[in-house]
Write a protein that binds this DNA or RNA. Sequence first.
DNA 1: CCGCGATGTCGAACCGGTTCGACCAAAGGA
DNA 2: TCCTTTGGTCGAACCGGTTCGACATCGCGG
Lengths: 354, 354
Amino acid sequence: MNIGEIARRAGVSRSTVSYALSGKRPVSEETRRKIQQVVDELGYRPSASARALANGRTSTLGLVFPPAGNHYTGMQLDFIGSVVEAAAAYDYDVLLSPSGVDSDRSFQRLLGERRVDGAILMEIRLEDDRVDHLAALDFPSVAIGRTARPEGGWWVGLDHTALAAACVHHLADLGHRRVAFVNRPEQLLRAGYESAHRGLDGFTKAAAERGLTVRTYCCGDDAASGQACVERILHDDPATTALVTLNEAALGGLYRGLAQAGRHVPRDFSVTGVVASRWAETVTPQLTAADVPAEEMGRRAVDLLVERLDHPDAPPRHHLLAPPISLRASTGPAGATPTADAGSNTAALTARHG
Amino acid sequence: MNIGEIARRAGVSRSTVSYALSGKRPVSEETRRKIQQVVDELGYRPSASARALANGRTSTLGLVFPPAGNHYTGMQLDFIGSVVEAAAAYDYDVLLSPSGVDSDRSFQRLLGERRVDGAILMEIRLEDDRVDHLAALDFPSVAIGRTARPEGGWWVGLDHTALAAACVHHLADLGHRRVAFVNRPEQLLRAGYESAHRGLDGFTKAAAERGLTVRTYCCGDDAASGQACVERILHDDPATTALVTLNEAALGGLYRGLAQAGRHVPRDFSVTGVVASRWAETVTPQLTAADVPAEEMGRRAVDLLVERLDHPDAPPRHHLLAPPISLRASTGPAGATPTADAGSNTAALTARHG
DNA sequence: CCGCGATGTCGAACCGGTTCGACCAAAGGA
DNA sequence: TCCTTTGGTCGAACCGGTTCGACATCGCGG
């Protein structure tokens, strides 16, 4: 079932078969039909390895994401799915590689052994040796996120600074004065994850601008941590009336913590943040949030990477996305006190939606 | 940077380099050191394509899952992650392939072009042409789930029948008499998805056994559908006091629908089902459910596949998992009427946890 | 002292494609 | 009529590894 066998049965040479199938040189109609018939009969498909070896391209993209020691978030799932589908549309396969850093065995396999034509990097850190390494090698890649110095690179990112700031302004506009920030886990912040840093940054600056009293917290990527985090928040400052979170996986726990503390959302306490819409819609009341457009990011990353592969000398391109806040039902005007009657607040909220 | 270059610089033949690196024939200590030095100096790594072509193995596993038209579930995410990690431990890469059926272009690429050594199939249907096709070809693969005739195959599955039945018995033991079943979307049921069918089956039989009055529903994989589904349930039979769900993605919507209908969980209404623990813990009250052991399934699937690859003549093996129900906080005794005082129920629930 | 096996190395073939240069026949132009 | 295109096909080289058989060298036992 190799090309030689096809050639033999069709009574032509191997090169003719190759040309008939690729169309890179003219082949007579008669010969082409004969070859096609044999191919169909035997269900022949050229070996990917042999083809990759011969023309130096694997038709495979690498998708590099950190190992799951830290749980995956829902956003990553949507993202992976859209990358795979977008790649399939360009006739590329997707190889998954669980690599946090440059020196990972898995990363070395991708690059050193030339298993992929290009790579998409997830979970970018401000100082990211993977990005630096690939840039130094001029290896075609697209980062999902920006390092500290994104100039001249290929990436698609979310403007976490602006998004977190938008959340702050939304809350400040509603009259909240004491606001908490729930970040990703501390280890990720320390590792320099972009979203954690820029989000914190945007939050802090915007809060200062609006003269808010704030506290910031790191929180594990699970419901139990979210619940514990709310307890800490309300213990540290019981007068807190709102929070902003980047932590999708903790969201359910945050809600639970608030409920157990007797704070009703959004009457007594407002919650907002940066979360993919499908997760924002899962909680009750639905979360008013900047919707992370995971599918779009995946699609765009693939588009960019394919463009870079097709035009090796194309100038660097990027997309910085800043989706607007979707008003749902988890934020409302700051009440006088948590125990005050909040009927008017609810009315205002309803009006805003109408 | 190919093996010939290494050979030249080390002053030996290409085959000697190959043997020095693979250790498949003795090489003198001196020669080995010289070669290793050159390799380290140049950072040489053998090309995966060339190696794959030469020895007929790609060191890559295919992970076949249906395209995301229907949203991915959280369980799939955990699953993908664990497969990738387990495969990495065996020095295999993972290639993602979004294929619903046999004839998908993507599926043909994997198989026909021999991009992978073996495959793991997700989202099995009772009649699954992918499974049949691979079995006919004797292509090394492991299915996540059982077809209608799983005998003689390699698979790791969840005993959905038993799990759904366990949910029914749990509710019946608590005194519930009118119970609804919330299945995956109708299109998946019609397509013959195993979990949807076996789960429905187990539910129906167990309910009959216990003499329960039941209704079964299909529900889209998102929160809005879940909410709508609860509305239908309570409209069709307002006396319903519990539901069993297989639909992880709809869970948040189910809770919201119940809350909006004024049913308090677990006082007025019990919810249980088959859901991965991290999602069961996200909702409030936390869901009493049979925890889908997604990570374990992924790991075991890889173990099985690697075993099959290493021992082509090994007899078929499988794992049928049936995790116990984890008691959390979403089920309680059926009250006399939804409006009756339920203090004693809550007490009983608390006691049970203690 | 000779023959033998073990050790170390090499050249060549092979895996299954792609592609280049050459060749031949038929068609078109001067 | 002869020369040049053009269309169609072939053989051979190449991509970068692995592996087989052969061969030289050495130490050893008989």
